[in-house]
Design a binder for these strands. Structure first.
Lengths: 123, 123
DNA sequence: AGGAATAGTTAGCATAGTTAATGAGTTAGG
DNA sequence: CCTAACTCATTAACTATGCTAACTATTCCT
């Protein structure tokens, strides 16, 4: 929890972490709110609010599904893509400054740990 | 973020994670709200609320500092200690079930990664 | 003795999560 | 073919946890 809070604090303030996570999901392809909610382990209403914030700020666009009137497709706008990249750059700059202080061998440990945890979380 | 949410979800619901973290700090020795706020990277008012919740539930006790009337010492009650241990037991049972699925070598990677991240977060 | 600093709290606000209920759209069965 | 049941997204109302600013009480310092 402490590490998570610390990272949150240090990360850029441009876009909140959970918003950034959603934007990253939309980088590859458009998704529906329900799909996003499932991926992010959040209820659909939560995702609605998160997405609404992004839409208001012009980072994400809603598009009706022509085949299924109930559904909505969400995708990054050009501005959203730019912001995603910029936010990543800033966040990575902070992280890189921390990682410079540790050895290559320690970095490798973190890479492997991330793989293991990602696998455990997805099971 | 996703992993953090997942752990939160799977953890026992007896005590919220940030409350548990505070209780664990008090296991060794009594601390003041301010000290706890510093350790947990949280503002003093936030810590007041967290602690108040624990006091209301009989898990933590407030004691006036006889030497400095401004200060308060916080310590675990007997019930608090019991709850801490029980909550840990449940949480560890879930975590253990996940860790059973990975190799001893992978567990070692996680141990080392934790050490590295703890060091980075404390700098 | 009196002003500055410190500790804890209170009050008010923001964010992000939840469940329950609503409305629109789709699908399937009689 | 039309109605009943389901699905999707959203809204409403509530909870939890963080923050800053302001307040009270105490201590420290000159």
């Amino acid at each position: 929890m402490r590490i998570s809070r610390r990272v949150r604090f240090e990360s850029t303030q441009l876009v909140a972490p959970h918003q950034l996570s959603v934007m990253a999901r939309l980088e590859d392809r458009a998704l529906t709110p329900r799909e996003l909610a499932g991926i992010e382990c959040v209820s659909p209403p939560s995702m609605t609010r998160t997405v609404s914030g992004l839409v208001e700020r012009g980072l994400v666009a809603r598009q009706d599904d022509p085949l299924d009137g109930r559904q909505v497709f969400l995708s990054l706008t050009a501005f959203g893509l730019l912001t995603l990249k910029e936010t990543r750059r800033k966040r990575d700059a902070w992280m890189a400054s921390r990682l410079r202080g540790i050895s290559a061998e320690e970095r490798e440990v973190l890479v492997r740990a991330t793989e293991i945890l990602t696998r455990l979380a997805s099971e």
